[in-house]
Amino acid sequence: MNHSEIKHSCLEERMFMYQLFLHYYRGDLLKLPAAEWGKLLEILECQPALQSNDWGRKAVLQLQNMTTQTLEPFEYDFNRLFVGPNKLLASPFESSYQNFEGTVMQAETLKVRNFYYYEGLQVANEGGLPDDHIQFELEFILHLLSSEKKKEALHLFLEKHLLKWVDQHCARIEEHSQSLITLAFGYMLKGFILLEKSLIEGEGL
């Protein structure tokens, strides 16, 4: 396996993982039938980088224990952590980690928006939905990942934004999760982010 093959395979896996997290945070997996979860697990078991990481393996192990009973509390727990209506236990907004009041729509949100503008992108319902919701940041990363030319911007965005706060986010998930699935995704994100960090460091950008 030569160097470029590894990179190519990494990119595919990266794209897959970012897409998976995007769907997860958008709430698309909340209605996923039990049978589909089995298929997803099979795919995850075949992701080499994820399997090479302790947290990734831990996540997959968690999901292997999943039953139909596990699915039931998933939506409630997902809402407790990321949606509400209660006090959010693992905020999915970047800015909320950066100020004492924990408010959304702050300076970081605008910085993220500026990144999007630079790429000619804009969040729907701008001003109503904070641009730095993890779902939008993941979607933006996917956009940047799709072109080799945007590599620099991608690394900059990761360093200036997602990587700055996602560890805290994962820690809160670990602390507050009450469902096997949300915990598994918390582990998986933590593991994946470790891989992303090492990749960036390895590329020396």
Partner: peptide, 10 residues
């Protein structure tokens, strides 16, 4: 801009 404001009908 409170993080805990209600966001959706629930």
């Amino acid at each position: 801009y409170h993080l805990d404001r209600l966001k959706y009908p629930m």
